[in-house]
């Protein structure tokens, strides 16, 4: 069942602009950036406060970058207890796509929705840099909706901006082979096997450390990130018309 068909009556519908909600946590600072990127890629996106359960009428949920609760104690931990995140598994069961960017990725792993953990960078400091990531076979393995327009070996240029982005996982190899759709071309933070992004089993939940939402217009340095959002939109609209 497609996300749109699943909750057709409650607002998701055929033949219209897919809807997106960007969750705003106290301390989020990338919420507007993600909102603009989604709108630019053909979504009708709105902001949604973290203390409310996720709305049923949206096809995509974005967890933005930033410093939710100041990143205090452990990045993403405090935000992962918010009601919007706690309602995420139930929301996902009805279909739908999720992207967590940077702090959003940290929240997804803290909530246990994605495997592994994100720890302090090696070397241990915040790093901002324009980097390239490469699409791996895992991106296409489960026909992930996020990579419909991608080919294995494609390189995407986008910025990273984080202090706790070193991906770690106890059973590294299995995860890498099946769940890591993007790897850093030059590892900036000591991530296990150059991991830059992780998918869940279904391929519908994407956690990504670099910022595709800041790479949607050539004049700002790159429009490679738009491919992810456009893939997601294409997936949602083609599901609706199928």
């Amino acid at each position: 069942m497609t996300p749109a068909a699943a909750v057709n009556d409650s607002g998701r519908g055929r033949g219209r602009t897919p809807r997106a909600a960007v969750v705003v946590f106290p301390g989020s600072n990338g919420d507007r950036d993600l909102l603009e990127a989604l709108n630019l890629s053909g979504f009708s996106a709105r902001l949604h406060p973290a203390h409310m359960a996720l709305p049923a009428d949206v096809d995509l949920v974005g967890l933005p970058g930033g410093f939710s609760y100041g990143d205090y104690w452990r990045a993403g931990m405090l935000a992962s207890r918010a009601r919007a995140v706690q309602s995420l598994p139930a929301w996902l069961a009805a279909g739908g796509l999720v992207i967590g960017v940077c702090n959003g990725f940290q929240i997804l792993v803290e909530a246990g929705i994605l495997p592994g953990a994100l720890s302090y960078n090696q070397p241990p400091r915040f790093v901002h840099r324009w980097i390239e990531v490469e699409v791996t076979p895992a991106a296409l393995r489960n026909q992930s909706p996020w990579f419909g327009q991608a080919r294995v070996g494609d390189r995407l240029r986008m910025p990273i901006a984080h202090a706790e982005g070193r991906y770690v996982h106890p059973q590294g190899d299995d995860v890498i082979a099946t769940r890591v759709p993007l790897v850093y071309c030059e590892n900036p933070n000591g991530s296990l096997a150059d991991t830059a992004a992780v998918l869940d089993d279904s391929g519908r939940v994407l956690g990504i450390m670099p910022h595709p939402e800041r790479a949607c217009e050539a004049v700002l340095g790159s429009d490679d990130g738009a491919a992810l959002f456009q893939s997601a939109r294409q997936f949602l609209t083609s599901q609706e018309s199928a």
Binding site: P26, Y69, G70, Y72, W73, L78, A79, R81, A82
Partner: peptide
């Protein structure tokens, strides 16, 4: 102690 303040707020929110 901003960390303690934020954690208190988050505990309350949760």
């Amino acid at each position: 102690d901003p960390q303690a303040d934020a954690i208190s707020a988050a505990m309350h929110d949760s």
